[in-house]
Design a protein around this nucleic acid. Structure first.
Length: 430
RNA sequence: UCCGCGGUAGCUCAAUCGGCAGAGCGGGUGGCUGUUAACCACUAGGUUGCAGGUUCGAGUCCUGCCCGCGGAGCCA
């Protein structure tokens, strides 16, 4: 008896096989019983058919409840009436464990209820489809950078100081001193880029912001490439290539999942190079002409991001921000030092910023000046300043938020479904 | 932190002007020879978020608190 996974069933037509999984649903009609079994790779209908009313298999079937674990043996049959086109005629059915009152029934549930049962919600079809797309995106990101000979350099999670000095950090005890959970690996990637030329890190980051919106997580994953001898323009081209690479992968390998999610792939298929390029000033003017009340010098809010994606069906790269609203390490524009050589990439369909990055300051004096202007403790940045003392070069990089990318590609209403166990304001369970 | 909305059976919800707390799903029992979130019949299931107040009478009105959802701000 060969044990198979449901995703391989079409290769075993006519064979006797064994599947191990969980009861998704069951139906009965007199002398026929239908047991729908999922095993994490798919869903299959298994069928018990008998003239004998008290057939032992019927008795076992009748005991079964939703999400009970079972081992089913039987012959694979092609049948148009079965969901998926194949079913298994049950020869033997072994109950491993009877589940009692599984809470997530095949009917409607509220978000709070599902979030409280996230550990079980992961068994649902749509959640599985989302997490399969997430996995595909992660693989695409790794393949993209590995294929271009970027070196993977892991950034630390525990950091000694408030790196960017902007966002609120999670503080923790580090023996007899304070430490903080990383909000970005960037500064460490700059050190790594000076060691290895082109590098990336990919890991979790933490922001203690009291943000309560559909696009914020407290703990989220970010991929952060950093390239030595690179300019803003170089890094924009890499960002473009990366997004197109991810889209191509998901569209070619995860069609089924997008279908389960009822995600129309055509807006993703339309995305081509080059992306829309706008300066911050141009963007503000366009938004104002469309009715936005934002002023020059404001950051883009949620309404602005929505408005932008109503105008363009391509990702939009916004550059040349006022230096005041950007981080201290941003390289100023030669032509206008009040502008920073940063870039935000906005995803279409209202998903907003998925990438933030830019060219970093490589001049020691200028960086020292900026640290002072931003009131940052210089001692904490001595190592960072060292990078400008020993063979400093122009360099650039960006961070791509994984969950925002997943949410966009899956067209999720809320980012919380883009990560297996989301950490949100007011929610850390389960 | 601010604004708005909500909390009633395991789940999703209903309950008219303040007047007997109800339905569907899920559970249980029985029926049905191909079901597709199957269907049909019967059945069990309640501290109406917590505390106080008004009232002959409160799920419903008032006050405070707790929890959550949507959005804003902050942020990426």
């Amino acid at each position: 008896m060969k044990r198979i996974y449901i995703e391989e069933i079409s290769q075993h037509k006519g064979e006797e096989v064994e599947i191990r999984g969980w009861v998704y649903n069951k139906r009965s009609s007199g002398k026929v019983r239908f047991l729908l079994v999922r095993d994490g790779t798919g869903l299959v209908q298994t069928t018990i058919f008998s003239q004998v009313k008290d057939h032992p298999l019927f008795q076992k079937f009748d005991e079964l409840t939703q999400e009970s674990s079972v081992i089913v043996q039987g012959q694979v049959i092609e049948d148009q009436r079965a969901p998926g086109g194949y079913e298994i005629m049950v020869r033997d059915l072994q109950i491993i464990h009877l589940a009692q009152n599984y809470p997530i029934t095949p009917k409607d549930h509220s978000i709070p209820f599902l979030m409280n049962h996230r550990h079980l919600w992961l068994r649902s079809r749509k959640q599985q489809a989302i997490l399969q797309v997430r996995w595909e995106i992660i693989r695409a990101i790794r393949d993209f950078f590995d294929g271009r000979n970027f070196r993977l350099i892991d950034a630390p999670i525990l950091t000694p100081s408030a790196c960017e000095g902007t966002t609120t950090l999670f503080e923790t005890q580090y023996f007899d001193q304070k430490a903080y959970l990383s909000q970005s690996g960037q500064l460490y990637m700059e050190a790594a880029a000076m060691a290895f030329g082109k590098v990336y890190c990919f890991g979790p980051t933490f922001r203690a912001e009291k943000s309560k919106t559909r696009r914020h997580l407290i703990e989220f994953w970010m991929v952060e490439p950093e390239v030595a001898f690179a300019t803003l323009e170089d890094i924009i081209l890499i960002a473009e290539d990366l997004i197109l690479f991810i889209l191509e992968r998901v569209l070619s390998r995860r069609r089924v999942e997008l279908e389960i999610l009822e995600r129309d792939p055509s807006p993703l298929e339309k995305i081509t190079r080059p992306f829309i390029r706008l300066t911050y000033e141009e963007t503000v003017r366009i938004l104002q002409s469309k009715g936005s009340k934002m002023a020059y010098g404001d950051d883009f809010g949620a309404p602005e991001e929505t408005l932008l994606s109503q105008i363009y069906d391509q990702p939009v790269c916004i550059t040349h921000f006022p230096a005041k609203i950007k981080a201290f390490y941003m390289q100023p524009d030669e032509k206008n030092p009040d502008l920073a050589l940063g870039v935000d990439v906005m995803a279409p369909e209202g998903y907003g910023e998925i990438i933030g990055g830019g060219q970093r300051i490589h001049d020691l004096n200028l960086l020292e000046k900026r640290l002072a202007e931003f009131n940052l403790p210089r001692e904490a940045y001595e190592w960072y300043l060292d990078l400008r003392r020993y063979g400093s070069v122009p360099h650039a990089g960006f961070g791509l938020g994984l969950e925002r990318t997943v949410a966009w590609i899956c067209k999720l209403k809320h980012i919380r479904e883009a990560i297996p166990f989301p950490r949100l304001l007011y929610r850390i369970y389960p």
